[in-house]
């Protein structure tokens, strides 16, 4: 273009050139890339000294197995938080899904179909969350607080308040079996994260999630189907919680109405530890898995050290505060 206004008349159009970067900026850069990974590694190093057998191969596998349910929940929570929402119902969905699927299995339904029933129940709750949040415009916190309550109630009502025993070996396999020496839940967890990584990075749905979380008004004006996307996001969160419930039932050999208590808070903590912002638009699924592992390593290490569950809660809460504080201080 033969513009009379040459480009250099515009101030601020170029970002600061990378040349002459100072040491401090390099540190920041490394921190931005690695941040929480460094904390995780540091935590592992500490644990390997203070907790007996922490570095054993079997223990490491054990950690992954232990975190798998929370991890699956946290994957769904990540996309919800990316849109600027919250899903408090996932812990209760874990219970409902477990009870529903085990009861179906006991009633003679094919184990695979029974498991799908549990996942489906989770999807349904998520869908309802989505409709009330996106279409009716109610705050997600309130909507999912309500479903956290009624879904837990449904789990009690349908099971009569007692654990339902799981007898199907096929069903048990999903929580307790292993393939090539690695527990099944770890495969499931890995699959969920790989798919989620792909969806968030490479699909239109994933990019729209970031757009909505970053600026919902602009997204609407851009012609993005905001409501539909949100309904899908909550449905997926519910579906993954349902999957988590099935896995947990398979591990416990029973569907328990008390299962998954406070799992939603672990999932939220993991997502925030993983660098997502509660206001939406910022965060990565890779971060979430790191957050999950940080929580898992703490629990595991403390258990190996024979620290009581009660004290573990105190430590865990403290670590969450400290980690998020460190994260804030750097930025």
């Amino acid at each position: 273009m033969k513009s009379a206004l040459s480009p250099n008349h515009q101030p601020n159009s170029q970002p600061t050139p990378p040349q002459g970067m100072k040491f401090g900026q390099n540190v920041t850069l490394v921190w931005n890339q690695l941040g929480m990974i460094l904390i995780l590694i540091l935590l592992c190093i500490v644990m390997s000294f203070v907790a007996p057998n922490f570095l054993d191969g079997s223990n490491l596998t054990n950690i992954l197995k232990q975190v798998s349910v929370t991890a699956i929940l946290a994957a769904g929570m990540t996309i919800v938080i990316l849109t600027g929402g919250i899903d408090l119902s996932v812990g209760s969905i874990v219970a409902l899904s477990g009870v529903v699927s085990v009861m179906a299995s006991q009633a003679g339904v094919h184990p695979v179909l029974a498991m799908l029933a549990g996942v489906g129940a989770g999807y349904l709750v998520g869908f309802i969350n989505g409709v009330f949040t996106a279409k009716a415009g109610l705050p997600a916190f309130i909507v999912t607080l309500a479903s956290m309550t009624y879904v837990r109630g449904l789990a009690y009502v349908s099971s009569g308040g007692y654990p339902v025993v799981l007898e199907s070996n096929t069903f048990r396999f999903i929580g307790s079996g292993s393939i090539l020496g690695i527990p099944t839940p770890i495969y499931l967890m890995a699959l969920v994260y790989l798919v989620m990584f792909y969806v968030l990075k490479y699909t239109m749905f994933g990019r729209h999630i970031y757009a909505i979380g970053g600026n919902a008004e602009a997204a609407r004006l851009t012609g993005i189907k905001v409501k539909k996307t949100l309904v899908n996001v909550y449905s997926i969160s519910g579906l993954l919680a349902g999957l988590g419930g099935v896995v947990l039932a398979g591990r416990l050999y029973s569907g328990q109405p008390t299962a998954g208590n406070m799992y939603e808070l672990d999932a939220i903590a993991a997502v925030i530890l993983g660098g997502s912002k509660l206001t939406g638009g910022v965060g990565k699924i890779q971060g979430t898995i790191i957050g999950v592992l940080i929580m898992g390593v703490i629990t595991n290490g403390l258990t190996l050290m024979d620290v009581s569950y009660y004290s573990q809660l105190v430590v865990k809460g403290g670590v969450i505060l400290a980690a998020v504080l460190i994260d804030r201080v750097r930025s």
Partner: peptide, 23 residues
């Protein structure tokens, strides 16, 4: 408030309305 997705890249900001064309 109504136009930009500040945390997203320039290219996504440009093509966000037409993403389905690249699906």
């Amino acid at each position: 408030d109504q136009g930009l997705f500040l945390d997203m890249s320039v290219k996504e900001n440009i093509l966000l309305a037409e993403m389905k064309a690249f699906k």
